[in-house]
Design a protein around this nucleic acid. Structure first.
Lengths: 158, 158
DNA sequence: ATTCATGTAACATGATCGGTTACATGAGAC
DNA sequence: GTCTCATGTAACCGATCATGTTACATGAAT
């Protein structure tokens, strides 16, 4: 909890959650996911709601309930997850809209809008080029490369 | 003042101010600049402070005081201005730092960090490729192309 | 019926940008 | 020297947003 908190870490958080679910067979409760992430179960449910609506995950109530993955990890990209979150604002920078009919402001905003749009597009493209399956494979590579603490438990020491 | 206020419009605002100053010979007061931008003189002084410290503009007090450009517009890029503002955060998205020793989080953050860094680099590069002089030229092109309301006054109808 | 887990609303918190007021500082004008 | 003008800042308010937390309703399995 030290350190710089950037604005919006929902994408990072939900990917963390998804990779956890991928390591577990059977439903995982919000409480367990929240414990792994060091946050609150309600926060988990909140960020998962969009993914459930998009059919990426499913949730069940009551005994034996919890969250399960409901998609092919190799066919879902990080951009799909981003959109499932509601496609939140990517850039912290923006234009003024105070004087839209001012030619000075028009010139400034035109120049900035190009740069902004390109940066957003690049980020979206990069997210679209990575699947959840590749992310999971990356995790497994780290797991084996890191020594052979061959735990069957999908623990992450968090 | 309706409408969506994006996070940080200081870059947009300060560019607006600089183009205004470029159209005026002699110092311009914060009050005039603020009126052109539809904001407050204190806000203008605040965003101009960094530019003054970097030597891009100069300020004078008292009668005949105000702000003047103190650099070659063709040698200063939008990225220079961005840095003079203190290089504020570009992206609204970020990582979690809750569990930095968790291998899942490491895998997630590594994937995201690449995409984030590339998008930031692209934006910085685009800003670095545009000089204030070109921005001013773009404004003049809009001014003449828009009809010939040949006002000598650098008004912007704001 | 009881217990468990999600689904949500409601409210608190912390950060940040923008706006505003207030006052001190300094540089001309008189 | 005094007055006026304009910057330089601090202090505070307000809105927005992500996050954290509590509370309670809903539904499913035991």
């Amino acid at each position: 909890m030290i350190g710089y908190m950037r604005r919006d870490s929902r994408l990072s958080g939900v990917l963390h959650v998804l990779l956890h679910m991928a390591e577990t067979d059977g439903p995982v409760t919000s409480e367990r996911l929240a414990a792994a992430m060091g946050t609150n179960p309600v926060v988990v449910r909140r960020i998962m709601a969009g993914l459930r609506d998009m059919g990426l995950v499913a949730s069940g109530k009551g005994h034996g309930g919890g969250w399960t993955i409901a998609c092919d990890l190799d066919r879902v990209t990080l951009d799909d997850v981003y959109r499932a979150l509601g496609a939140p604002e990517i850039l912290a920078l923006g234009h003024r809209s105070a004087a839209p009919h001012c030619l000075v402001e028009q010139a400034v905003n035109a120049a900035l809008a190009d740069a902004f749009r390109e940066a957003e597009s690049l980020l979206r493209a990069r997210l679209g080029a990575v699947t959840l399956g590749r992310l999971s494979a990356d995790f497994h590579a780290r797991l084996s490369g890191r020594g052979l603490c061959g735990r069957t438990e999908p623990t992450d020491e968090a």
